[in-house]
């Protein structure tokens, strides 16, 4: 029971880190970046290559993966989304799906469809016993990273000039422009942060589930998107809460109900939550102030 809970929280923490990328981009650029999941996969491959081929240390691998994904995120935004800033949201959505396919197929071309076995970067560090349950070092590192990221992002958005500008842009792009805020660079920074986090999520995900393929990011991406909607899209604490709940529900469903049905159960819970509370758990009510 305890070990399921810890597994669930640790899986949920990965969803949460991915969900943060979805939710921040949605909050600020008002678009669903469906290629976000594939950035996770790119992060995984970058870490894999730097450890397996170049023999780098895990820390260097993580930093390298983050750097590549950050640049990738900014580039995707510049090339694919920025030209569509004033286009309909449907056009942007289709473009995002296109970018997602592009990344998957590029990875297929470069790395082939053979699954790579991801080296466990945190395997031999330590294990902790909680009662009868054993907590792996991957789980500990994952949960700790999640907490650190949450605290850092909260401080960033509430204390720094750029963070406050992001909240301003998220609320009213036009008014933010009138303050002298460069909306385009704010959106770039958002993509950079989201993609950097995706790289971390990629490394953590592949450490816990070490099969790396070009489609590795797709399902966690969709689950994390679900988590973001579940928690209330646009809300940072919502993404965290949604991610962790989703992970816990998924692991418990797998353990007690059915492995095959676990995903169906996760999405059923999402549907029920959205019926009861359409804005998600922590989503804001959209009321027009007159």
């Amino acid at each position: 029971m305890v070990s399921y809970l810890i597994n669930g929280i640790s899986l949920g923490a990965i969803y949460a880190i991915i969900a943060l990328g979805y939710t921040m981009v949605y909050g600020i650029a008002k678009m669903l970046n469906f290629a976000h999941g594939d950035v996770i996969m790119v992060g995984g491959y970058m870490a894999y290559c730097s450890v397996s081929y170049l023999g780098w240390s895990p820390a260097a691998a993580v930093i390298f993966a983050m750097a590549v994904c950050t640049i990738l995120g900014i580039t995707i935004e510049k090339l694919a989304y920025k030209p569509l800033r004033d286009a309909s949201s449907l056009a942007v959505l289709i473009t995002a799906i296109g970018v997602s396919y592009f990344l998957q197929n590029a990875a297929l071309l470069i790395f082939s469809s053979n699954p790579k076995v991801f080296p466990n970067l945190f395997s031999d560090m330590f294990t902790i016993k909680v009662g009868e349950a054993t907590v792996t070092s991957v789980a500990v590192v994952t949960i700790l990273s999640c907490i650190i990221i949450m605290v850092a992002l909260t401080l960033f958005t509430s204390k720094t000039k750029m963070g406050k500008a992001m909240r301003a842009v998220s609320e009213d792009r036009g008014a933010a422009t009138l303050m002298g805020i460069n909306v385009n660079s704010t959106i770039s920074v958002t993509f950079a942060i989201g993609s950097g986090l995706a790289a971390i999520a990629g490394v953590l995900l592949c450490s816990a589930y070490p099969t790396l393929m070009p489609t590795t990011g797709a399902m966690p991406g969709i689950k994390a998107f679900t988590a973001a909607v579940f928690g209330g899209i646009g809300s940072i604490p919502g993404a965290m809460l949604g991610g962790i709940l989703l992970g816990v529900i998924e692991i418990f469903a797998k353990a007690y109900i059915s492995t095959q049905l676990s995903d169906a159960i996760v999405f059923a819970v999402l549907i029920i939550v959205l019926i009861v509370k359409p804005t998600g758990l922590l989503g804001k009510k959209l009321t027009e102030k007159v």
């Binding site: 301003a168 609320e171 009213d172 008014a175």
Partner: peptide, 24 residues
């Protein structure tokens, strides 16, 4: 330009709104 309909940042504090005004 102080826009029509005020358009203050509803979710930011008064002080943060003013800080945004001095962004440049």
């Amino acid at each position: 330009l102080c826009p029509e309909g005020r358009r203050v940042f509803q979710e930011l504090t008064v002080r943060e709104n003013l800080e945004m005004g001095a962004f440049s």
